[in-house]
Design a protein around this nucleic acid. Sequence first.
DNA 1: GAAAAACATGAAGTTTACTCATTTAATTTT
DNA 2: AAAATTAAATGAGTAAACTTCATGTTTTTC
Lengths: 304, 304
Amino acid sequence: MLLELRHLRSLQAIYQGGSLARAAEQLHLTQSALSHQIRSLENYYQTPLYLRSTKPLTLTPAGLKLLALAQQVLPEVDATDRQLRSYAQGESGRLFIAIECHACFEWLIPVLDRYRQAWPEVEIDIRLGLNFEPIAALQKGEVDLVISSDPQAHKALSFEPLFDYEGLLALAHDHPLTAKKYIVPADLADQTLVTYPVERKRLDVFSRFLQPAGVEPANVRQAELTAIILLLVTTLKGVAVLPDWVLKESMSHNRFTTRPLGKAGMHGTLHAAVRRNESEAAFIQGFIALGKRAMDDVIVHYAE
Amino acid sequence: MLLELRHLRSLQAIYQGGSLARAAEQLHLTQSALSHQIRSLENYYQTPLYLRSTKPLTLTPAGLKLLALAQQVLPEVDATDRQLRSYAQGESGRLFIAIECHACFEWLIPVLDRYRQAWPEVEIDIRLGLNFEPIAALQKGEVDLVISSDPQAHKALSFEPLFDYEGLLALAHDHPLTAKKYIVPADLADQTLVTYPVERKRLDVFSRFLQPAGVEPANVRQAELTAIILLLVTTLKGVAVLPDWVLKESMSHNRFTTRPLGKAGMHGTLHAAVRRNESEAAFIQGFIALGKRAMDDVIVHYAE
DNA sequence: GAAAAACATGAAGTTTACTCATTTAATTTT
DNA sequence: AAAATTAAATGAGTAAACTTCATGTTTTTC
């Protein structure tokens, strides 16, 4: 196959310019170069592309076919080319986000709404981290940013802190445990614990609170949606551990209260993990900047 | 712009093969060549296209964009490429036919029906030669074959004879001129002549019969369709000169008869004019072969 | 019919793309 | 863990391709 984009560009330029000479000028070539180029194409296809008997060259049927191809293909190529250039400048790109924690939806959706307005060129998607290891997926390029609560030293990945949170026990106003100033693991031994339907190792309550103390709740029940978990809590069907931002959001509207886990509380920091070589890209930094301010309006809400 | 089809082909091969080495083999290149090629692309776009940290190379978002382009564009390019190759071999091509004579429709349509079946790849169109000079259009590549009755020596065009015809005067059974064995120009001086609506110089009656004798018919009336002309003839509204094949077709169904023009009759030969360099193309020869046999079934009809 | 415009041609020069040989890195095996 | 294996990167040399330059033809215009 001899045909290259270069040839299609030449054909288009000749068509637009009406002559080899003008096309050559537009393409920053000499007329001779174009003549050679066309000749080599004609040679390759064993058929003339232009009628030489007329002086402003006119296309043969074969030439017309090629020109039609040029006019179909070149715009597509140019569009992709432009897009890739802007990728490099960080003005646009692909931002596929994987989240490990279900609760993160509560702040992520509003953040993405704002992000879309600021970075309209960026292709956004959310991958719920149920079936796969988000960090591995990040390395493999399946996703471009992972919201994670346990940063790790990694040569190819960089973890940027977003904001601190505290895991709080949510319980109904009239729940017996409201009597306590803070919760210790043993308090949950006779309770029903409501969680998101994910592996235990991904749930802070287990990995950081119950398992170190060797405590198992009387019952564990799962619910997909935050609203349902809170409903179960207010109706005394169980207790749940959720990040503070979720609870602050809903506290005023629901009849439940919160207690810290342990005397000092169970604190953590949410991080955005990205591939190190992309971490400086403007559209990535733009997301992180918005992510760091995700709690701003939640706290305003809380203050009411 | 650095991007060429070559790069898109490489991306596709790497995607299909799964590795540089296999792709290189498929493309008849070395692994090194591919590595250099990819690197130059990455250099140009200032962004990696593959993640090097994984061993079977995986695409970055930017790489995916390019691959998507490749998969969209390459099939189109390949299709055109194949088509152009077959152009050269004469198996396919474009056959835009210009006809100078209205009456030619009568035999051309059935011929084209047969032609389409034999040459399904050929793109067919008919351009009615009302507004333009068909021979000039042929030279300019606007059409590819002209049905003409006056062949001329031409360096760039070749005229191939199809079949002979005779221009006959059609008149109603009860028309006074039926008394004559053959018609002389003066016979039409008091007649209404019905013709197709084209310039006189294109009508044999005028250019070869009346004008040389300096005779002008009493009246000239025009009609678009052969059927209407014949209707006018049978209803004694006028007489008309038409090629024998048209009349043979309709003779049995209509109440009219024919007389030769002049003692010897006004004979001619229809030719197919094509560009000389295309005249040997198989799909052109195929049409001419069918054209030469166009009268075969007409004559059968006449014999009934 | 001469002048001008447009394209073709061929040799020379330059860029570019490819190959070869080797090194480096990642993955698998022992 | 270390060795072996597979896969990709690198760099210099080479060959090919594209371009230019200078000039020759052909077509068109005046």
